[in-house]
Amino acid sequence: MIDFGFKQVAIALSLMVLAIILARWQKVGTEKEMAIGTVRSFVQLVAVGYALEFIFGLENLFAILAALLVMILVGSYTAAQRAKKMPQAWRIAFVSILAGSIVTLGLMLVLRIITPKAMYIIPLGGMIIGNSMNCAALVMERLHSDITGNRLAVETALSLGKSWREAISLQFRNAVKAGMMSMLNFFKTVGLVALPGAMTGMILAGASPLEAVMIQIIVGYMLTAAVAVTGIVTAHMAVRRMFTRADQLIV
């Protein structure tokens, strides 16, 4: 069993050096970005590693919740940055990611799939928040572009006496589907094209492949539930901000 530490990281750095040399040789123009990325990812991940070591050491529920809250705040901000045209995008992303996280992590705890320990909640929470963030951003972007891009169709339906809900039912469905697409695709190719991250990590850490597979299946189900909740909450909150109470399209 190999112990991974700074020594191994330093050796692995040679791979980045090779990539940068290749990029420079082929004049791809990404060398600077790659160099910055190398340093940045190292600093960020090492900092997170120490922070997690600290939180794991505390084993305090409030510290765990605080860490999750920070992750949700950063995730909502990032999602909102990607869906800038959506009114109150930050608030929508925050509530929907929070909902996705509470429902899935809560159920996992209630059903005793995991115990309330930092070593379970923080990494799983990170996965949930990361996937929910992408889902919220995608749903907001898609909903906004589909509704504004089909303004005539939507307003025609409204003018024919349909409610806003009926007028945008197709766009609503497509946006939620777009938000969940990565998870649906994941199920189609999982294990066939690539071994997923959690499973790979567990195998590298010395777990038996079968145990790693079980965890991965749980993670897959958990993330699907999270993006379903986040996607639906996002879509509901977003469309309410695109119409007035008198069913008038305002974006």
């Binding site: 024919l160 006496g161 069913d247």
Partner: peptide
């Protein structure tokens, strides 16, 4: 509003 829009098309 849905009724209004049916009566004022």
């Amino acid at each position: 509003v849905t009724e209004l829009r049916r009566r004022i098309a």
